[in-house]
């Protein structure tokens, strides 16, 4: 059961910003299965609350949305560059690109295990979203 790509990796923290709860839950679970510590933010306002606490370490911000919250993804990115220039920012903009970005993180990051492909995650998100009644925000 030896996997060449596995290593005693340092756990990194991803701040996941996603306003669709099903997509957020699935993406967060995927990233945790890859070995990341994941902080979940439902909008950019929540993300800013987290980022304003300097003691909370964040290595990567993965933003799957562009507008939700008083600050958009671009404003969030600017805030991070000015206050935490070492933090990597990925502005995905939608679920599919967020899943791709998560897959790339799992390739490059602290891979404790890689149990399934990003496409599986995306298909799962689509199925779950399609299977429930529409909710008013």
């Amino acid at each position: 059961m030896t996997m060449a790509h596995q290593s005693p990796a340092v756990i990194q923290t991803v701040l996941l910003v996603e306003d669709e709860v099903i997509a957020r839950v699935m993406l967060a679970e995927y990233l945790r299965d890859c070995g990341y510590n994941v902080i979940e933010a439902a909008d950019t306002d929540e993300a800013l609350v987290v980022l304003q606490h300097a003691e909370i370490e964040v290595d990567v911000v993965l933003c799957g949305i562009s507008k939700t919250g008083s600050a958009g993804g671009f404003a969030l990115s600017q805030f991070i560059r000015s206050t935490r220039p070492w933090t990597h920012v990925v502005l995905a903009g939608n679920h599919a690109r967020a899943v791709d970005a998560a897959g790339e993180l799992c390739e490059a990051g602290p891979t404790l295990s890689k149990p399934y492909e990003p496409q599986v995650v995306l298909d799962r998100i689509k199925r779950l979203l399609a299977g429930r009644p529409k909710q008013k925000k």
Binding site: V21, I22, V25, A42, R127, L128, G131, R132, P133, Q135, K136, K137
Partner: peptide, 12 residues
């Protein structure tokens, strides 16, 4: 609550 209901209505 609406997010909670959305999760509970899913297969999770």
């Amino acid at each position: 609550a609406h997010e909670a209901i959305a999760v509970l209505q899913s297969q999770v």
